[in-house]
């Protein structure tokens, strides 16, 4: 494995870089899109169940089908990385919109009322009270979405864009186990590292959850 790495350092490095941005850019985009959608699901309670159902359906679409189907809808080239980014963003939104809604619903209504009675207006209350209190739930969802994206990127290799996944296809084509092993180890390491980073951020921004 080390010999393969030494001889193919450039290829592996490029694949790893591609893997990182293909997985994490959708997390960022998905999070930004999911925030207002999740909020609407709480602000207008009638929207909550339709939201949950839609998210469930979206998440159940097979990724490969989405990768192949998106160019038709978006008019992008079949080999464009945009397809992967859009597909993974859809999955992230499906996971996080519900998480954001559930996080906001987990906030004690008594505390929200107290905030209102002290003179918070809606937007400031959301930013200063409700979102911070929902963070533990939202960040837990973010961990799932991030790890899920890192593993899904590899599927993109079947349509030619897949970061470390390309090491798998290469290994299969050449009946050669080394690149497959390297790909597996690196994606697991990447997922573990991303998860750890989020946990560290969570510890830093929600010190109150550990205060008992």
């Amino acid at each position: 494995m080390t010999e393969y790495l030494r001889n193919n350092a450039d290829t592996v490095w490029l694949a790893l870089q591609e893997h990182v941005w293909l997985a994490l850019l959708p997390v960022l985009l998905g999070f930004v899109i999911a925030l207002p959608i999740g909020y609407l699901g709480v602000r207008f309670p009638a929207l909550y169940h339709p939201l949950v159902n839609t998210c469930g359906v979206l998440y159940s679409i097979p990724s490969l089908a989405l990768f192949v189907f998106l160019p038709v809808v978006l008019g992008t080239k079949v080999l464009s990385p945009v397809n992967v980014v859009v597909a993974l963003t859809i999955y992230t939104v499906a996971l996080l919109a519900r998480t954001v809604a559930d996080g906001l619903r987990s906030v004690d209504p008594v505390v929200v009322q107290a905030a209102t009675a002290m003179g918070y207006r809606r937007v400031r209350r959301l930013a200063g009270v409700e979102l911070p209190m929902a963070l533990p739930v939202i960040l837990a969802g973010l961990r799932v979405a991030t790890v899920s994206n890192i593993s899904l990127v590899s599927v993109g290799a079947l349509i030619g864009i897949g970061g470390l996944g390309q090491l798998f296809t290469r290994g299969f084509q050449l009946f050669y186990i080394e690149p497959i092993l390297v790909g597996i180890v690196l994606s697991v390491l990447l997922a573990g590292l991303a998860d750890l980073l989020i946990v560290l951020v969570q510890r830093a921004v929600t010190p109150w959850t550990r205060a008992v």
Partner: peptide, 20 residues
């Protein structure tokens, strides 16, 4: 909001912000 900021409000169980 301005009216409420000029009126103190205390409730049962205090209703403190757990994150602050």
């Amino acid at each position: 909001a301005a009216l409420r900021r000029g009126i103190g409000y205390v409730i049962q169980h205090a209703g403190l912000f757990p994150h602050r």
